[in-house]
Computed example of a mutant assay.
Amino acid sequence: MKLGIVRCAQTEEVCPGSKDFQALREKTGVFAKVDDAIELVGFTTCGGCPGKKAVFRAKSLVAAGADTIAFASCITKGTPIGYPCPFAKRMIAAVEGNVEEGVEVLDYTHGW
């Protein structure tokens, strides 16, 4: 798996992404069922509310070699601030509808 992660721009100041990296390294969370090696090709933000840049950012990750785009748990689960993004579903759907066919989109990274 060649992975690109899209994270919340609002939590960028309080979270360095350590739990995302730990989950992919230890194959926990959404990565628990991945048998192949995971190579991180990029880690970027959604661009800020309301996430209009998420499609462009995901496409740039695909251009860098990603075959899978994961939305970090800060977007869909609200970790670590306890506030999920109100635009998460719309962002994920927009990315799914605008990246190349065959690119997998995951809706979270870790469960804690």
Rank of each mutant, 00 (worst) to 15 (best):
F43W: 12
G47E: 09
T68R: 12
F56S: 15
I69V: 13
D36N: 12
K52E: 15
C46S: 08
D35S: 14
P50E: 09
G42A: 13
L40H: 08
T68I: 07
D67K: 06
G65Y: 09
I38C: 11
A58M: 05
A37Q: 11
A64Y: 05
G48Y: 15
G47V: 10
G42N: 14
F56W: 02
A54V: 00
T68E: 14
I69P: 08
A58I: 05
L61Q: 01
V41C: 02
I69C: 09
A66N: 02
V55M: 09
C49P: 03
A66C: 04
S60M: 11
V41I: 06
A58S: 14
E39H: 08
K53W: 01
G42M: 13
G51K: 03
V34R: 01
A66E: 02
D36Y: 04
F56Q: 14
E39T: 15
D67V: 06
V41Q: 02
F56C: 01
D36M: 08
I69N: 07
R57H: 02
A54C: 09
D36F: 01
K52P: 13
V55T: 03
F56K: 13
G51M: 14
V41K: 00
C46A: 11
V55E: 08
T68A: 12
A64G: 07
T45I: 08
D36S: 15
F43L: 08
D67R: 01
A66Y: 06
A63W: 06
D35K: 14
T68G: 13
I38R: 06
A66V: 02
C49F: 06
I69W: 12
L40M: 12
R57M: 10
D35C: 01
T45S: 14
A64P: 00
E39S: 14
I69F: 08
T44D: 13
V55P: 09
D67F: 04
G51C: 11
V34G: 01
G48Q: 10
G51S: 13
D35A: 10
A54K: 08
A66R: 02
A66T: 00
V34C: 04
E39D: 09
A63L: 10
F56M: 15
V62F: 15
K59H: 04
A54R: 00
I38D: 11
T44K: 09
G48A: 13
F56I: 06
D35P: 01
G47N: 14
T44N: 03
A63I: 03
K52W: 14
P50H: 06
T44P: 03
I69K: 04
